[in-house]
Design a protein around this nucleic acid. Structure first.
Length: 697
DNA sequence: GGGCCCGCAGGG
DNA sequence: CCCTGCGGGCCC
């Protein structure tokens, strides 16, 4: 499977997407099924003979033909093998125009998943999940979506398939032919809601113990003690200049490897892959990445424990499972600056750069955090900071960076026992071959690991683990908080008992109303909302994110600006003709039907003791939570906060500084300006505009 | 969105 | 004690 990660075809201009060079005719190999050109020298597995070359299937197509499934009769779910044959037949029919081909292909795809002929859902999860499986397949490869991206016209594809499509110069949706926004063509973003849903579908399919979606907790640190803020000014101006708060985990500052449950007395679960935090300070409180600003946490004689990808260095290159990281330094920080985009001198392997090189030599596990500030990566979170798991530095070197100065470079390859947040895989990493790095040809000071790595894959146990003892900590560990641990254990147990389906459904909640989405829309920035919520939000006013003086995030109404309520990207164009993400909608509806049925059954079992409101599918717990979190509440609390601020506002002191900056805390405007506490209303049975349904004959 | 400013923590 | 640093609020 390793080749799935690294093999890339040539793009529309015949340039290899792996090495960025244009292969000569001899070096070019064309797939017999999809007719895509590939660069032979960049293939991880090359054809052995001339006959193989002529009958060669690219890695993507060979994956499909390796898992053939017999063509099923009408009425049964389409199997991938049958579908691909049918699609190939359409594609090779020269009497059809592109448009007609697309239409036929849609008909094929809609055959069994149309909205009007939902299959009867019978008992058992497997049945439900087989339906979901059919809904969540990529129209290109017919497999369960892998790294799903959603077009504004409401169709979902694997990132790789989509990139390939774009690489061939296509700028229209393969399903409905609607135009793909240029921004999405440049940088398709992964729809994380779909990732979670698909992963659970896979686990259910494999008949594994269905451990619901890992509960990716959003840590808000409401209980951060006041004394964490050491200056008056920091209290008043949010946490920009705050002393960092309490450290919640018991690992020492120089702890290597994952943060385990035993070091998490507060929640007793450790830090899970996919967990997010609002700021670097929160990330630090959970022991994942300690420095407030620096991208590398480490000591030159001890090794580096973690790094953050925040887009601070333009030489960085992110491919998800592997990335090229740039060292620190080389910048002019005079004038009391903390960072500077401009390079002005060469970087050296010293301090934290040396620490990272030591981790490379020793094969230590390095925790990786991605930040929303990294704007050039498909793998960065859309907001907040996210823990993406353990990587190892396989090589490091120096090269001349984009700005012309030498930079330290590090090849990071993922080696975590849990799947990455963007992949639909349900298992973690396996050892994979190193990617081909072109720039190594011009690199200097190349360092590679000589001995065996400290953190490695154990074939017998089937997991990544310490093969050599981790380096001894030079720091004192934090004290635990056992009582809190007990309390949260109970909460965790309760959470685990929740129905898997309800969990799944919860993953499909709208950012605005916090309830399960009705008619979901996926914006070009890959956020999901109810159609009515999003349209309602822009009906004369919109909501923008803002921070209160205490650093809390709130939604604030603002007129005439059409920005995504989640990330503030401009979505005016999208709103002109928003299309429902039909596949996601069907997933939600299937889940709701299942839960309704389960509720009904349990009701019958209990002789109707507990009456549940008609038409409510979501559990009471979820409903309560949604109620607590709804938008109205947020806005009201903001008003209250503003009132409080007005009363308590005073002069903000400043301890030191070369220049007098703007010292006082900026007041919010009068708190009611433009705020409409009315919640956007949801319309349950509204009509959808769906390209697939429209194109049906 | 970019520039300015600066508290803070950790390395050396 | 000085230097470094892929933050984050505020202002324009």
């Amino acid at each position: 499977m390793a080749q799935q990660v690294y093999d890339l075809p040539c793009d529309g201009e015949g340039i290899c997407m792996a090495c960025k060079n244009k292969p000569t005719a001899e070096e070019s190999l064309t797939c017999k099924t999809c007719v895509t050109p590939w660069h032979v020298t960049c293939l991880s597995v090359r054809p052995n003979s001339l006959t193989d070359t002529l009958q060669w299937d690219c890695p993507d197509c060979s994956l499909l033909s390796a898992n053939p499934v017999p063509v099923s009769d009408a009425g049964e779910s389409w199997s991938s093998g049958g579908l691909i044959a049918a699609i190939c037949a359409i594609e090779s029919d020269s009497s059809l125009t592109d448009r007609e081909k697309a239409k036929r292909r849609q008909q094929l795809l809609c055959k069994d998943t149309g909205p009007s002929d939902h299959k009867e859902v019978t008992n058992g999860d497997n049945n439900l999940f087989s339906i979901l499986d059919g809904l969540l397949n990529c129209s290109f490869c017919m497999q369960l979506l892998e790294r799903p991206v959603s077009t504004p016209c409401g169709h979902n594809f694997c990132l790789k398939c989509f990139t390939k499509w774009i690489g061939r110069g296509k700028r229209n949706c393969a399903n409905c032919r609607k135009q793909i926004p240029p921004k999405m063509a440049r940088l398709p973003l992964i729809n994380s809601t779909l990732v979670t849903v698909i992963r659970m579908v896979k686990m259910a399919k494999a008949n594994a113990v269905v451990e619901p979606s890992r509960d990716y907790p959003v840590i808000r640190n409401e209980d951060r003690p006041d004394k964490a803020f050491s200056t008056e000014r920091s209290v008043k101006s949010g946490n920009a200049n705050a002393a960092s708060g309490k450290i919640f985990v018991t690992t020492p500052m120089d702890h290597f490897g994952p943060i385990l449950a035993e070091n998490d007395p507060k929640r007793n679960q450790g830090v899970l892959v996919g967990e997010t935090w609002a700021s670097r300070l929160e990330c630090r409180q959970w022991g994942v990445h300690n420095p407030h600003i620096s991208g590398i946490a480490g000591q030159s004689k001890h090794g580096a424990q973690s790094v953050t990808l925040s887009g601070g260095y333009e030489d960085d290159e992110d491919h998800g499972e592997w990335f090229l990281y740039t060292g620190s330094g080389g910048r002019d920080l005079s004038g009391n600056k903390r960072t500077n985009k401009e390079h002005s001198f060469d970087q050296q392997f010293e301090n934290s750069n040396e620490a990272l090189r030591l981790s490379c030599r020793m094969g230590y596990p390095v925790r990786v955090v991605r930040s929303h500030k990294e704007k050039r990566s498909s793998y960065a979170p859309k907001d907040r900071l996210r823990y993406d798991g353990i990587y190892r530095v396989e090589k490091c070197w120096r090269k001349t960076g984009i700005k012309g100065f030498k930079v330290c470079r590090y090849l990071f390859v993922r080696c975590d026992n849990d799947p990455a947040p963007w992949t639909s895989d349900v298992h973690g990493d396996r050892p994979r071959p190193l990617p081909v790095i072109e720039e190594l040809n011009v690199a200097i000071d190349i360092t590679e690991r000589k001995g065996s790595p400290s953190w490695d894959y154990d074939e017998e146990k089937g997991c990544w683990m310490w093969k050599k003892p981790p380096p001894c900590s030079r720091k004192r560990a934090n004290n635990g908080h056992s009582e809190e641990g007990k309390r949260t254990k109970k909460v965790r147990r309760q959470a685990q008992n929740k129905s898997v389906k309800e969990k799944l459904l919860k993953e499909c909640s709208c950012y605005i109303c916090k309830k399960v989405m009705t008619s979901p829309l996926t914006t070009p920035c890959a956020h999901n909302f109810c159609k009515s919520c999003l349209e309602g939000a822009f009906d004369g006013q919109s909501f923008v994110r803002q921070r209160t003086c205490e650093g809390r995030r709130t939604l604030r109404a603002q007129k005439n600006i059409m920005k995504c309520p989640s990330c503030s990207n401009d979505i005016a164009e999208f709103l002109q003709n928003p299309q429902v993400n039909r596949e996601l909608m069907e997933v939600i509806e299937s889940l709701q039907r299942e839960i309704a049925k389960e509720n009904m059954e349990s009701k019958e079992e209990n002789d109707g003791i507990h009456e549940k409101p008609k038409g409510v599918y979501v559990s009471n717990e979820i409903a309560e939570e949604a109620k607590e979190n709804n938008l109205k509440g947020q806005i009201e609390s903001e008003i209250q906060l503003t009132e409080k601020m007005k009363k308590t506002s005073g002069k903000c002191t400043q301890k030191r500084g070369k220049k007098k900056g703007s010292s006082s805390c900026k007041q919010l405007d009068d708190g009611k300006n433009g705020v409409d506490p009315s919640e956007p209303e949801k319309v349950a049975g509204e009509e959808l505009q769906d390209p697939i349904a429209e194109s049906k004959v």
